[in-house]
Design a binder for these strands. Structure first.
Lengths: 141, 141
DNA sequence: CAGTATCCCCTGAGATACTG
DNA sequence: CAGTATCTCAGGGGATACTG
């Protein structure tokens, strides 16, 4: 019999591209880099350190990472509640790469910015693509 | 006088986080990895190799990367048009990191999938977060 | 403290058609 | 071939209020 007969495995396979996409969520990299530096960390610590996350997105990110086996979540049955997050083995190898990326970005942000200024000055008005369209209420109001 | 008086420089600084976010667009990694393997590549080559990109998104991605000095764009004034893209020095260092990421994903996709199945089977119905809400016409109809 | 529940806004990204 | 112009929409992501 095939595994699919068990009625559990529906996703025939997980494409690399798809996995990559879940890893490129807005807060995945910041979270992993934070845990790469200090681990374990509590929910609140992460919240503070990340500066800008909403509880919702932080929780969502953490849940997804936990589901994928990238991080581990430990609940301490105390009151008030205490929950710790730490990288798994899998997560550690991933976090190492993300840290490289973050380093690269920090190192080269000024280069990129400089190049942007050049482009702005010399070349095109560069509305990126499909700019000037304006949606319903994009007036920043 | 300050530079801002020139009316050109408004962005005081480019935060690392922001740069990172532009790098985590859906097609940035695939494009850079492709160019990391073979360079230069023509627009059409990239389109075919990436499999799934729309012209619009490919162009947008390439334009952004060019603007940021990650890739270089060469137009050959022929007919029919011929445009080649290649990594810049900056881009090469970035692409190397992205290639690591892609490798990681390819290597560990099965691990992740296995862990997902475990979670599905054992734990929670796991509607991720804010599932079951349903937007305007989210009936997939 | 950690997490859920809602509501709502963009905007990233796809589909399609057209141009030099 | 390479690129632009539009239109459309799903859903990622933010804000706020509430609960064990």
């Amino acid at each position: 019999m095939s595994v699919t007969e068990l009625g559990i495995v529906q996703g025939v396979e997980l494409p690399t591209r798809e996995l990559l996409e879940t890893l490129t969520n807005k807060w995945t990299l910041p979270v992993l880099c934070a845990l790469h530096e200090t681990s374990p960390m509590r929910h609140g610590e992460l919240r503070r350190q990340l500066d800008g996350v909403s509880q919702k997105m932080l929780t969502a990110t953490l849940r997804t990472l936990e589901r994928d086996g990238i991080i581990e979540r430990t609940v301490y049955p105390e009151v008030p509640p205490k929950v710790e997050y730490r990288l798994s083995g899998l997560g550690t190898s991933l976090a190492a790469i993300f840290s490289l990326l973050q380093l690269w970005a920090a190192d080269h942000a000024s280069d990129v910015q400089a190049h942007r200024s050049d482009s702005d000055a010399v070349g095109a008005p560069q509305e990126k693509l499909s700019a000037g369209h304006r949606h319903r209420g994009a007036l920043t109001a």
